[in-house]
Amino acid sequence: MLLHTLEETVSQYLFVVLFAPLFAGILANLKARVESRKGPSILQPYYDIAKLIRKETVIPRASGNIFKYSPYLIFGIYSLIALIIPVLIPDPVFFTASADFLGGAILFSLAAFVKMLSAMDSGNSYSVMGVSRAMSFNFLSEGTLITVFFAVSLMTGTNSPYVTNHFLIANGISVVSLDHVFSTLAFAMLFLYETGKIPVESSGLMELGMIDEGLVYEYSGKLLAISKWSSYMKQCLLGSVLLNVFLVPWGLYSTGYAFLMDFPVMLAKWIFLITVVVIVETTLAKLRLFRIMDYLAVAFTFSILFLIFSEVTL
């Protein structure tokens, strides 16, 4: 039994760490194809990371220790989250007990905080601008994240994403219940914001619109590689929560070696999510920077409103 859990733990961790860049690669490739470009290989994120690791690391003179070590810390935080939430295995694994859903949300916030701290420490004015932008939007996004998780836990009466997952599988009708539908919507909007997708942010280093990219402006070489990798992991984690707890909770097993089947299932789910994201990215225009607040306000409104409606209508 212990061995089985160990296997599951390891495979879940490896899934997050190893497959995260792949999803980013598929997304970039698919998007390019929709835009009638040939696009990079789906393995391009791996090449990027490999290339960056081999490059020289330049550390600004004005920066301090936080700047140097925070990428490792962030990577570590995301690694821990990977074991807390149901990314691959629908049942608890090792370390899952270390935090609940809300704890996961707070860990996400902690990672964002450390990231901003490191940007502040870099001594670059561009990075500081990125921090101020990120801060002015995050007050809404963090609130949304936490309220969405509240809404989920209200439905089942616990704060464990695993219970929610089982509950949704067992009660088909609650997938279309009011609180679930709208918390899903709010979380999907949040996912687009947190991973820097159109309509919030366009990928690529555009100084005028960048929010998240601005924070890693000063990093290079190995540190940049780790930062990028962390971002891929974040995307993978948030996307998996969106898929397994909100959108399509079905299809995951953990009895015996059936958990190996979870890899292709998750891959299929991710293809679905990537398709949705590509559709959103190619049909919508990027919002002006000061409109992002409105976007987040909408997400926040959804989450709060339906948190309360679900409380009343239970």
Partner: peptide, 21 residues
């Protein structure tokens, strides 16, 4: 100002509706 109206509207609804309700 959408963000401002939404948040105010939310606060307003939450307070009034739920007190009354």
């Amino acid at each position: 100002n959408l963000a401002y109206y939404f948040l105010l509207d939310l606060v307003f609804i939450v307070i009034s509706v739920f007190i009354i309700f």
